[in-house]
Design a protein around this nucleic acid. Structure first.
Lengths: 194, 194
DNA sequence: AATAAATATTAACATAGATTAACAATTTTA
DNA sequence: TAAAATTGTTAATCTATGTTAATATTTATT
């Protein structure tokens, strides 16, 4: 069954009864996207919080100069949504686009609220997931101020080796907040070092 | 009563019964700090999640070169803690220091878990608070990549006018990720503009 | 009020990283 | 397999911001 990876993911943190599992399964939506398709566009309302079954998405903001700033990559077992837009149902700041053929499990606002009410364990789990995402986000801010571009690249490489394999290099540059040309230079320099 | 501002803050979001309010009150700790005192030091375990009643704190990371990177200012009605350290009881990445005489309401790990269990409304509220903090943190990452230092300063000034009044300028610079000298230059330039 | 401590400014010079533009390599499509 | 499209590299030049150091201003202490 396609939803299996989500149930397995959840079971790492909390134990659901068979009834709870089938209730959850009955409520969420499964959807396949092709490479290049948008799950969300900046300005639209984010209707779903999504769990990635397979594939890869990027979430990015398009600034006034038409520049893309990648905020988040999501691969299997991770989540994606414009949380700000989702929780207040206001226009999104971010685009979410599939970098590969991607399978998602989608939680609508109503469904997620219903699940919180019916299965409090899930509210607890989602709180903990957000807490960890928040911690990671704050750490990224500190790294962006305290590390050089080279060190941020090395950190990324080390932290997300899987992601580096599957995305083009210019997206890594965007995630790191540098130009693709400068990342090229950094890599050349790293190669020269040994 | 010193805890009143916390109850008032909570009442903006959820309605507690008088029993719940007094249970909450019986569980949390109130503490006064003097200017300069540390609530938490990098490397220690963060024992409390704190609500600011009055005063101001800064949370910052000290990097390998001894440089201070300010992650967060907290004034009245806001929260402070090293969330990563608090939730997993591991050594803190951040220092929390009082910039002024500061009054805090402190939630220990045990207390907060007990409150979540006894008053699920509070778990919901805390989830929502974290969600908003996470959204704000992600937006700050995007600003740090898409805006110039000048524009980040203008954003800060506009967003946190109260904080700018009470802290020295070199801390604003640290929060923005620039040197105090460069912030001076930016301000001189802004003054020259009109 | 006088001194000391903390904070802010200014200017000369240095550098990480951006920009531009041309080209090279790889991947996709015909 | 060839052409087109996408991705990556290199090098010259430019710019935002950092560094250093001297000085000025404000605030706290005696």
């Amino acid at each position: 069954m396609t939803i299996e990876p989500l149930l397995k993911y959840i079971s790492n943190y909390v134990t659901l009864t068979p009834e709870e599992e089938s209730y959850l399964t009955s409520k969420v939506a499964y959807r396949k996207y092709l490479k290049g398709q948008y799950v969300l566009q900046q300005g639209d309302i984010c209707k779903h919080h999504c769990f990635v079954i397979s594939g890869c998405t990027k979430m990015f903001h398009l600034d006034d100069h038409g520049q893309e700033h990648i905020v988040l990559f999501s691969i299997e077992d991770w989540w994606t949504s414009d949380m700000g837009s989702f929780i207040s149902q206001t226009p999104a700041d971010y685009n979410i686009q599939c970098i590969d053929k991607t399978e998602l499990i989608m939680f609508s606002v109503d469904v997620i609220e219903d699940l919180y009410a019916k299965i409090p364990k899930l509210e607890r789990l989602f709180r903990q997931i957000i807490e960890r995402a928040f911690v990671a986000s704050q750490k990224r801010i500190v790294r962006s101020f305290s590390l050089s571009s080279k060190d941020r690249y090395l950190y990324f490489k080390n932290q997300y080796p899987k992601i580096e394999q599957i995305i083009p290099q210019y997206m890594v540059a965007s995630y790191l907040g540098i130009t693709k040309e400068f990342l090229s230079k950094i890599k050349a320099q790293l190669n020269a070092e040994e």
